[in-house]
Amino acid sequence: MISGQQLSGFRIAVTSDRRSNELIEALQRRGAETTHTPLLRLAPLEDEQFLLGQTRRVIAEPPAVLVVTTAYGLRRWFDTAEAADLGDQLGRALEGCRIFTRGAKALGAVRALGLTVAGSASAGTSEALLELLRGEVAGASVAVQMHADNDRPLARDIRRLGAAHVVKIEPYRWLENSGDPQISSLVEGICAGRFDAVTFTSAPSVHTLLTAAAARGLLPTLVRSFNERVQAATVGPVTAEPLLQAGVHSPLVPQRHRMGAMVLQLVIALSDQGTLSVDTARGLCQLRGRTLSLNNQDCTLTPLHAEILRCLLQARGNVVSRDELATSLSSLPSRHALDMTLSRLRKSLPDPGLITTVIKRGYRIA
C-alpha cells in the first residue's frame, strides 16, 4: 500500500454537518470511499431573539460561575452578541466570572477571548466537569453554555451540587433529520455491513442515529453491527457516551479530542483490524474492506461477497460448512441462496480457483 492510501478499499460514512468537507477530504486523501449523510443540521442564526434575551440577562446580572461546554458554542454566542452590538458588554460581564470548561477546545476558546479559566475538565466529559464543579457552585448563580438537548441533565446536576440558580445559554439549535430517507439508507447500510466505519463528531448526531434505528425497529441490529463489523469512530468521549450507553462496546475515542486525531486512529484501527492477509495456493490474498487484492490484481466486492470471503479467509484453509457460513452471514436472503451467491463471488474474483468446494462438507480457501 503506497503512502497516503492507508484507507484504500474501505468505505466510510460521514455523519457530520459542520466541517464535513474537511473530514471527507482527509479520508479521501488516504484512499477511502466516503458517503455523506448529515444526521443533524445546525439551525441558521436568523432569529436569535431567545439567545439575545439570555445574553441580556447575563449582562444585567452577571453570574458568579460560567460553565463552557464547547468551543464552537462559545464562539457562536459571542458572534451573535457582537452582531447585536452586545459583544463588549458580554465580555465585561464575564470578566468577573469564575469560568470552568469541558475539554481542551473549550479551554482554548475561553483563553482566545482574553478571559481567565478557573478550571478545566481535561477528560472532556460531563462527569469530569461535574466532579470539577463539586464544591465550587454551592450558593452561586451559574450560567451554563449548552451544547444540545442531551446537555440538559448537566444543568439539573449543577443545581444538585447546590447552585442557587442556573441560567441556560443555548447558542445553537440542531435541526433533527431522523425522518430523512437518506438516514434510512444509512441505518440499513450499517445494519447490512455496507460500511467499514462511521464517523461521529457530536453526541446529538449519535442520538439521532439511534432514534432513527429504534423507530425502524433496527436498533438491536445496528448495535450488533457496530460491535461485530462496522467501526464507530468518535471525536471524543462526550460523542462516544451515547454509543456506549446503547451497548456499542468499543467506539474509537482519540486521546486528543480533535478531528485529525480521530482520522489517524481510524487509519490504525482499519489497517490492523479491517485488513486480512492470507498466503494461498493462488498467491497472496489481501482483503481491505471490500477491496480484494490477489497477486496485485484488485477487484471491488459487494458487501455480501466481502463478508463471505472474510469468513473463508479467517478459516485459514480449513473447511467452513454451508451451515456455518449461512449462519454467520446476516444479510444472506436464505440458505438456499448461498450456492448461487458463492458462484457469483467466484466469477468476480481475479482467480475463481481461490475458493474451492469440498463435496458434502462446505467451502474453503485454496
Rank of each mutant, 00 (worst) to 15 (best):
E48G: 10
A81S: 13
T69D: 13
H36V: 06
R41I: 14
R57Y: 06
Q89P: 05
L39M: 06
T37D: 04
P63N: 07
E48N: 13
G73R: 00
D85Q: 15
L74T: 04
I59M: 09
F100L: 13
Q49E: 15
T70G: 10
G96K: 05
R76V: 12
R29A: 10
E25A: 15
F50I: 15
E61A: 09
V58E: 00
R30P: 05
G31F: 03
R41T: 14
T80L: 02
P44C: 10
L51E: 06
R30G: 03
R76G: 07
L45Y: 14
L40E: 04
L27Q: 02
I24H: 03
T69P: 12
L42I: 13
E95L: 01
R92Y: 08
L94P: 01
A26K: 04
A83D: 12
G87D: 01
F78E: 02
R76H: 14
Q54I: 05
R41F: 11
A26C: 08
F78D: 01
T70P: 12
T37P: 00
L27N: 07
G91R: 10
P62D: 02
W77Q: 04
E46Q: 13
V58R: 00
A60H: 03
V65A: 07
D47S: 04
D47E: 09
D79G: 00
F100A: 11
T34Y: 03
L94S: 06
L94M: 12
P44A: 12
F50M: 14
T37Q: 08
D85R: 15
G96F: 02
A83I: 13
R57I: 03
T35A: 14
R92K: 14
R30K: 14
L52R: 11
A81V: 15
P44W: 13
E82G: 11
R75H: 11
I59Y: 03
T80R: 02
D85P: 10
R57P: 04
L74S: 11
Q49S: 15
L27T: 02
R76W: 12
